[in-house]
């Protein structure tokens, strides 16, 4: 007898530009696995939060929610730049480290899922990479 896989469905509300936005969370197993890894990583000293999304689902967890829109836009433009330069130079790039003067961001594309983790510059991002995709 085959077992039915049931996707868990929850909702969360975030504030974007002062307006509440409800994001539906239909978690597939890969997404759920990444999410639980990110919850653990988020406990690491210096990690400021993360954004995880796929075509239907998004999870945003930031220490400073006022940065939500800016961080989401940075994450999105970085993914676009990664895909564009991959096409141009024929490289299939899937991991990115963007270092600012104050904060650095790690972005990864894993299947359909895209995630960005924000952290202080002193945090060892190679260790974070390993914890996301060993």
């Amino acid at each position: 007898m085959s077992r039915k896989r049931i996707a868990r469905s929850t909702t969360t509300t975030v504030m974007i530009d002062g307006a509440p936005v409800t994001i539906t969370l239909d978690e597939d197993p890969a997404f759920a696995g990444l999410r639980s890894s990110l919850i653990e990583i988020n406990k690491t000293p210096g990690v400021k939060g993360y954004i995880l999304k796929n075509t239907t689902t998004a999870v945003i967890n930031l220490q400073n929610p006022t940065k939500l829109v800016e961080y989401a836009l940075l994450s999105s433009e970085t993914m676009d730049a990664c895909q564009k330069t991959s096409e141009l130079f024929n490289l299939s790039m899937t991991k990115t480290v963007v270092e600012g003067t104050e904060i650095k961001m790690l972005s990864m594309i894993i299947g359909e899922n895209k995630l960005s983790i924000f952290m202080e510059k002193t945090v060892d991002h190679t260790d974070i990479f390993r914890r996301i995709s060993p």
């Binding site: 940075l74 299939s92 790039m93 990115t96 480290v97 963007v98 003067t101």
Partner: peptide, 17 residues
């Protein structure tokens, strides 16, 4: 331009295998 929110871009590295 979007990296202004993290203090301005210093460097970026894209990795493939």
């Amino acid at each position: 331009k979007r990296a202004n929110t993290i203090g301005g871009l210093e460097s970026a590295t894209f990795y493939s295998t």
